[in-house]
Design a protein around this nucleic acid. Structure first.
Lengths: 144, 144
DNA sequence: CGAAACCTTGTACCGACTACAGGGTCAAGC
DNA sequence: GCTTGACCCTGTAGTCGGTACAAGGTTTCG
């Protein structure tokens, strides 16, 4: 299987496959006499593994770590779980931060009484208040 | 005020100030005879404005747009609101995606019965199933 | 034989910084 | 007057996970 076929089967770009090889996530395959990469089914499986982890938004460094762990039979499963849990915690923290942002942005948007010129825009007013270090609708008890 | 003082007052790194100048978000200030940047209070206000928008996770390009809009008195307030609302929508979409990820990662973590060796790790098993295109705990009805 | 589709390497780009190298300037203390 | 340390300057490269070229070689089909 050449690189185009592998990429098609995994649903990724050809460049991405080469990128993963460069980053050490995909083993460098053997080459045809003319220098083309020749992949086997084990490469497709590995690539699917990487893509699946990426679909869970794991960074490549962690995916690499997961691959290393899984190839060492002496390693405890707890290390794998710890990695997954740590990632889950980061995702949760990010989601909570975004929830706060949503409230702030909705509040800010509510300041706009449409039809105005920017001179009287409630949104810009709030943002400029904030620039003076004062409280604003989106950051009510901001401590500066 | 020199760059260090400005940066301290706005709570940013000196490099960030120079970066904003290069990116056109902060007007280039006058210079002392020895070439040091000399800032006035209007620069601090602008910098605070930018930082406040950044705290709402707006990309620099949008902040720039906001600055441009706010300096044109003929512009309607609706354009400002539209920009804020579009940003809100992006934040909301991202938050929802992360919520889905949280569920997936929690499900995956629940597959691990601790104390095992990786050979029997439920997490890796699931991930490898997924790499074969089969359904897995974290992506139950995956269509490949 | 020629065109199209494929492959190769190498490089640069995205955002929003951060870090570092290699130098110049300034204020204080001795 | 000299040194020390804190500050400032420019320019460059790195982060992350790719994407997008450019300039060439190979294969495949008609």
């Amino acid at each position: 299987m050449r690189i185009g076929e592998l990429a098609r089967q995994a649903g990724v770009d050809v460049q991405t496959v080469r990128y993963y090889e460069r980053e050490g996530l995909l083993e460098a395959p053997s080459r045809t006499p003319s220098g083309y990469r020749a992949y086997g089914p084990e490469h497709l499986e590995r690539l699917n593994f990487v893509r699946h982890c990426r679909s869970l938004d794991m960074p490549l460094a962690e995916i690499k770590r997961l691959i290393d762990l899984s190839s060492d039979q002496r390693v405890s499963c707890e290390q794998v779980d710890e990695l997954v849990r740590a990632h889950l915690e980061r995702v949760r923290a990010k989601r909570i931060a975004l929830q706060g942002l949503e409230v702030q942005l909705a509040t800010l948007s509510a300041q706009c009484a449409s039809g105005h010129r920017v001179a009287d825009c409630g949104i810009l007013e709030e943002l400029i208040h904030a620039a003076h270090g004062e409280a604003c609708a989106c950051h009510p008890q901001r401590a500066v």
